[in-house]
Amino acid sequence: MWPTLKRGVAAGAVVGLIYGLFTALVVHPLTASLVEMAHHGAHGHEAGAHSHAVPETTTAVVSTGSGVLWGIFLGGVFGLLYYFLEPAIPGTAAIRPYVLAGAGFLTVSVSPWLVLPPVAPGMEHQLAASTRIWLYAGMMLAGAALSVLAVALYRRIGSDWRRGAAAGLAPVAAAVVFVPLLAPATATAGGLPTDLVVAYRSLVIFGQAGLWVGLATAYRWLGAFSTDRVTLAHETQI
């Protein structure tokens, strides 16, 4: 278990650093612009740019550090889950980390976002915080159930991986399409332009998707690197 956990933590640290830099250099500037627009209007941004130089630098450092910590935590959980669930994860050894990462992304992010999409600064929540927490937790459970269902359907049609993948992804695709249509609005734009809200949400989704893909890739690469080192050491002894 410990080698798997250490590999997950190492992969999470690497990917968390990249995610933290992405947040600090891309997401944070857009967030600051939205906050400025929401509170002071677009015309006051240039005037206050120099006065916010130090706080923005501090925020960038904090964002990067938070990304590393989040990556380490996520990588550790990923490693533990992979250790316990590997026999049940379909696919080859090279594919299984991506399957687990896809299930994690569906559970932690995609499923809750179907009802509670990312809220940009300046938008206004329609639901109380306690209601959002319970709703988010409930949608995470629904996402986990969808992941289990997808794997079960894939295994049921195991003779052809293409048909199995299509069967497994079918309920996921149906949820992504129909749940947002049935869910009530949980936030209002608060006067922000629609294109900025879409851009913010797209960045958040892209960042989280990249985090999970990067975690699976780093985890797989570290596993291959460890295997190569063991093989090389064995051949050297011989």
Rank of each mutant, 00 (worst) to 15 (best):
R7P: 01
G16F: 12
L21I: 14
T23G: 14
E36N: 11
H40G: 09
G71L: 02
I72M: 14
G76T: 06
F78V: 05
F84G: 07
F84L: 10
G91Q: 06
P97V: 08
P97S: 09
V99G: 00
G102K: 12
L106Y: 11
P112V: 08
P118D: 02
P121L: 13
T131N: 01
I133C: 00
I133W: 11
L135M: 14
L135R: 08
V151R: 04
A152R: 15
A152D: 02
R155K: 15
A170P: 02
P171I: 11
A174I: 15
L182A: 15
P184D: 06
A185F: 04
A185R: 13
T188M: 05
P193F: 13
P193T: 05
L196P: 00
L196Q: 11
V198H: 07
I205N: 00
F206W: 07
Q208W: 09
Q208M: 13
A209G: 07
G210N: 01
G210I: 09
W212M: 15
G214M: 06
A218C: 06
S226F: 07
R229Q: 15
T231R: 14
L232F: 14
A233H: 12
A233D: 15
H234D: 14
H234P: 01
T236E: 12
T236R: 15
Q237V: 15
